[in-house]
Write a protein that binds this DNA or RNA. Sequence first.
DNA 1: TGCCATCCGTTGCAATGGAAACTATCGCCC
DNA 2: GGGCGATAGTTTCCATTGCAACGGATGGCA
Lengths: 167, 167
Amino acid sequence: MARVDVVEEPFLLEAFLPYQLSVAANRISRLFARRYSREFGLSIAEWRVMAVVGRFGAITASVVCERTEMDKVKVSRAASGLLAAGLLAQAPDPADGRARLLRLSPRGQEVHRAIVARARLLAGELAAGMDAVELAALQGALARLAAHAGVLEAADGEGEAPAPPEP
Amino acid sequence: MARVDVVEEPFLLEAFLPYQLSVAANRISRLFARRYSREFGLSIAEWRVMAVVGRFGAITASVVCERTEMDKVKVSRAASGLLAAGLLAQAPDPADGRARLLRLSPRGQEVHRAIVARARLLAGELAAGMDAVELAALQGALARLAAHAGVLEAADGEGEAPAPPEP
DNA sequence: TGCCATCCGTTGCAATGGAAACTATCGCCC
DNA sequence: GGGCGATAGTTTCCATTGCAACGGATGGCA
């Protein structure tokens, strides 16, 4: 009789989801970074801060962190760049002396409008050749993946510090 | 009569495809990097090199670049790390004096098997809660996005040097 | 009230990543 | 067959990134 094939099939890197995701995200990110840097002189981090400040009005850096999924250091640096460029203004937070409220300056508002328009255009370009259903499915899948990865990551990190000794 | 709403709806960062993609990819990449670093002491770049060398046998660094979508500097560093760790071996390429052929060392082969098994497990974990159809749709969409972004990027870069003057 | 754990945001530092320069080799065309 | 542009891979340099430590401020609780 023929030998049953115990031969495992080769591992295809290009069919491995984390790899595919990384390649797609990197390419799009690069494309995106190039355009925004060329047209507005903004980095992606700065761009994201503009987007959430434009949407939520006066908010603190820590809220920006939550809404952009960025680290506080990154937000801090992006904000100081935008302040220097005159696109943001900051004011002390009456409710908390440690915090500062960020908002768009008048020029920032103009730039924000342009930025959003450009983003919509880019999103359209990317989605070209995808119908609405497919796009929604993709976005849903990405959201679930991100959430799932978040859970796995948290579960992973948990066991790392094996019960710190009582002080 | 009621004012027609010219009010454009706010820009939702969390519904913007490049952002979603970036968040999902970053989380998964971090998760992945942590596990491989902990279990095998490998970076993602090293991991990718192991994967393609394991699959294709003796290949040159430049081919590894193509198959991993990584820059040659990154491949060079990953390869030297793996050589130092004794997971790869290199031999001069008889067909080209500049190139070196990379292949797995005996220990590299063992590690490769473990790595692949682990990757399959992780892929399964990530895909949990997604049926085969959905997964295939996601992968297809990612592939098309990556390809599309590649085209846009190339088209973008093109116009940058506006026809260099003849020398 | 006075103290302490906690939190906001910035800064310093080490690791990472990519662009460009460099060395060695190739292959082609004259 | 000799020279020259192109290619393989490494090294060098600088920008970006993230972690950890910090100074300033808060709020709850004794």
